[in-house]
Amino acid sequence: MKRTGRITGLIGAAALLAGAAFAGPVDDTLVVNEEIEIITRTAAPAHLSDALDEVLSGWHFRNDDTRSMQADDFDNPGMIFVENAMTAWETAEGTEGKSCASCHGDAAESMKGVRAVYPKWNETAGEVRTLEMQVNACRTERMGAEKWKYGGDDMVNMTALLASVSRGMPINVAIDGPAQATWEMGKEMYYTRYGQLELSCANCHEQNYGNMIRADHLSQGQINGFPTYRLKNTKLNGAHNRFKGCIRDTRAETFAEGSPEFIALELYVASRGNGLSVEGPSVRN
């Protein structure tokens, strides 16, 4: 009696999973400004092969309008913030009277490829650094300027500029050597069932991508598109901001942007997208 009950339940679940394929990733390709080809789906990196065959950008899970906004910089509201950051790039600040440009020249040249390899081990500092940490290190150590707030507008705009000049290049963060311990910590977090709802990142983004959770179409929770311009709050959002919200939504005590936990999680989540193109600033809902 009981057994039949369970079997029927399971068949129901299987039928749903099959049905959910219709809601799955949209089959489409992204070329920005008719010139930058974006790899939005590719074979999963080796370290992930027991969990996923393919990795997919969150772009595939958004609707037609949202996807097309990202195909042209004139339609991508995130690019306005990139322009703001270009001004900041040239603006001298701090006791040394220097701007980013004083040391790095043209961002389009000198910063090409940088986004793709962060978070990254910094030998001198002896730590894994996110792009935000590196920007603040330049500000305090080389410019004699104040740190920017980790998830503040100045910072997220600057990371959008840095991402934009690497668009199309494959994410390739290192997970071995001195970064390995941090990566392991991030991996453990990814599979931890936080909060009163006891849901891990993997529960939603690995086991259920393509499915609807209430009105939301679950993606793989990749961060190759960050920062993202969200139609929901009409501004750019950094990856730690997203992590914070996702953990909060499990009815958990979340972590702070820039915390050691989120630095580790960022390295791990970034590595799940190794092979996908840098896409930021992307457009999401």
């Binding site: 069932r193 009163q196 709802l197 006891e198 914070k244 909060r248 005590e253």
Partner: peptide
């Protein structure tokens, strides 16, 4: 994956509703 609706112990970092 289904949350436990009548249980109060054994959680990892339980929060105060959705406040974070």
């Amino acid at each position: 994956l289904m949350p436990s609706f009548y249980r109060t112990d054994g959680y990892t970092r339980p929060g105060n509703a959705f406040t974070g």
